[in-house]
């Protein structure tokens, strides 16, 4: 049940983010929509790794190493998402730096003013 709810939410977040990025006209708002979509993708990947009734892949007194295989969830998606979040911050910083330079050039954040590559 938890998995299905989380998966559905992740998909809805991706859709909201894509719709926002496609329809907004302000560059900064597009970047906000991108971060929302990014969060949705991360949620979907983590939800796929979750197995009902199991616990986190950290061994300690409550989860001894001997019975680990029967009690922990899949650690690989978590490792993937962990690095994806960090890279996501780097990508956001890069997009913001470019938005700053574009504003410096044109004095506007409206995407309709940037028409050099329009066809």
């Amino acid at each position: 049940m938890i998995v299905q709810v989380a998966l559905a939410t992740g998909f809805v977040l991706i859709l909201i983010g894509i719709y926002g990025a496609l329809t907004q006209r302000n560059l900064l708002r597009m970047i906000v929509a991108f971060t929302v979509a990014n969060s949705g993708v991360n949620l979907v990947i983590v939800a796929v790794g979750y197995l009902p009734g199991r616990t986190a892949p950290i061994l300690d007194a409550t989860v001894p190493a001997a019975e680990a295989a029967a009690r922990i969830i899949d650690p690989v998606p978590q490792a993937l998402v962990l690095t994806a979040i960090v890279i996501g911050l780097g990508v956001t910083a890069l997009m913001l730096a470019f938005a700053y330079k574009l504003y410096e050039k044109r004095r506007s954040l409206d995407i309709a003013r940037f028409s050099e590559l329009k066809w």
Binding site: I58, L59, D60, A65, A68, D74, P75, V76, Q78, L82
Partner: peptide, 21 residues
């Protein structure tokens, strides 16, 4: 994932499997 769960503790000695990966 089963390989990681069964072998990490004695091969690498790390308690946090995500860190080990």
């Amino acid at each position: 994932a089963r390989y990681y769960a069964e072998h990490t503790a004695q091969d690498l000695g790390a308690a946090n499997l995500v860190t080990a990966i």
